[in-house]
Design a protein around this nucleic acid. Structure first.
Length: 421
RNA sequence: GCGGUCGUAGCUCAGCUGGUAGAGCGCCGCGUUGUGGUCGCGGAUGUCGCGGGUUCGAGUCCCGUCGAUCGCCCCA
């Protein structure tokens, strides 16, 4: 026997019927964006490596050790996208969307790639839903973006997650705070690796999960206490609009994100039931990114929501998401004449939008009924010589077991009517 | 990249201190005429992750490897 080829490591596979949940979650997370004027964007899965190095930031873990990078036949360095924002910015700049009506509002649902050690909820190919609103400083826009994420989660029935927000300041006030924090960190007892992090990206140290580190951070200076007047007012208004939108949140001054481009408003959705990988989504403002990538000096804000992790969160909260039924109606033909009839009927029903499957392979009635049951269909229709002679078919409800005889001519109409009821 | 745990039928797992494999679920069939889901009976399916070693003999011990999983770093 030939050797079985295995799938790539750390990539989740969604098979029926669970894959229906994946589709439903993705739909739930993208739907709010479509209701707020965001248009869909389809982008390359790979980009020039320098896009991510410049956009995401060289000092980030994502860029320094988690990228799938290779050289193509033209000796160009190519990278499978590790996140979505940089690619969106590139496309916006390249195609001049920033020259049109602002803000540019865009959403996507796509796979991303990170060469990490796989774990539960952490994959090498991860699915994310994201939106970007480019060319707007208005704090109401920040609140909209956050609210759309919240709406996505809420529409799935999730209730146990927590929205955390803070402000990271801007190019004016961040450097001073950063220096202040570095001074503070220098006075602590930290291991070499953490000291290095304090030098390169001091904010990241605030996020350390280790008790011995957290203990020393009790009195660490926080960015929210050192915002410039503009940033403080912006942050105040974001919270104001979130209240108007009825989006519950907690202020989380220690919130740190892994990508370098974030400024001002930053947020994260955390789900306590997921263990170590508790972040189900996050995002923030990136006011310097466009210019960093050679575009017009436009600010922007967006989010990335983990589709995989949201599925896990739904499962953890015991939510049933998506319809696992493969069809609405299952046809059971007995004999070749009935089979002709069933094939034709299946075609007719599908054309009017009814999901139909039928018993193939000339199975015995009993086996076919079993298949009907397993299909999740609401109705079964047995078609045999009697039905063909009488021109009337039994429409059987698989839930109740009751069946009514329906004239052949009105069967399609009756089924459509019953399914809509 | 680092540390822990695990890897037996499609799925969930049992298999005590080494003696040539089991259960439940699922799947297929039967319970006489054309009706599924419950019940009863019957049946198929495993190179016990892979490679090597110890042994008369290994699913069971040792080493390696791959994979999964939990934690760290980090992140969706």
């Amino acid at each position: 026997m030939a050797e079985i080829i295995k799938g790539p490591k750390g990539v989740p596979v969604y098979l029926p019927p669970q894959s229906a949940t994946f589709l439903a979650v993705r739909e739930a997370l993208t739907s709010p964006a479509r209701h707020a004027g965001y248009g869909y964007i389809e982008l390359p899965v790979y980009e020039d490596t320098s896009l991510f190095v410049r956009g995401v930031g060289e000092s980030t873990d994502v860029v320094s050790k988690e990228m799938f990078t290779f050289t193509d036949r033209g000796e160009r360095s190519i990278t499978l996208r590790p996140e979505g924002t940089a690619g969106v910015m590139r496309a916006v700049i390249e195609h001049g969307l920033d020259k049109g009506q602002l803000p540019v509002k865009i959403y996507y649902a796509a796979p991303f790639f990170r060469a990490e050690r796989p774990q539960f909820g952490r994959y090498r190919q991860l699915q994310q839903v994201g939106i970007e609103a480019i060319g707007g400083d208005d704090p109401a826009l920040d609140a909209e973006v956050i609210a759309l994420a919240d709406e996505g989660y809420r529409s799935l029935g999730l209730s146990k997650y927590e929205l955390r927000i803070t402000s990271l300041g801007c190019a004016n006030c961040r450097p001073a705070y950063r220096a202040l924090l570095q001074d503070f960190l220098r006075g602590l007892e930290l291991d070499v690796e953490t000291q290095e992090r304090a030098r390169v990206n001091p904010l990241r140290v605030l996020d350390d999960k280790r008790m011995e580190v957290q203990r020393q951070l009790t009195h660490a200076p926080l960015q929210v206490d050192h915002l410039c007047a503009d940033c403080a007012e912006h942050y105040r208004l974001v919270k104001h609009y979130l209240l108007l939108l009825n989006v519950p949140f907690v202020e989380f001054p220690r919130l740190v994100r892994g990508l370098d481009y974030y400024t001002r408003t930053t947020f994260e959705f955390d789900h306590p039931l997921l263990g170590a990988q508790s972040g189900i989504g996050g995002g923030g403002r990136y006011d310097g990114l466009m210019t960093e990538l050679g575009g017009a000096p436009l600010s922007g804000i967006g989010f990335g929501l983990g589709t995989d992790r949201t599925m896990i969160a739904c499962d953890a909260e015991g939510l049933t998401v998506g319809d696992p039924a493969r069809c609405d109606v299952f046809l059971v033909p007995l004999g070749s004449e009935a089979k002709d009839y069933a094939v034709r009927l299946a075609g007719q029903l599908r054309r009017v939008g009814v999901r139909v499957d039928m018993a193939y392979g000339d199975r015995a009635l009993k086996g076919s009924m079993k298949a009907a049951d397993r299909s999740g269909a609401r109705y079964a229709v047995v078609i045999g010589d009697r039905e063909l002679a009488d021109r009337a078919l039994p429409l059987k409800s698989l839930a109740t077991g009751e069946q009514e005889l329906v004239p052949a001519d009105s069967l399609v109409q009756t089924i459509v009517g019953n399914l809509e009821a």
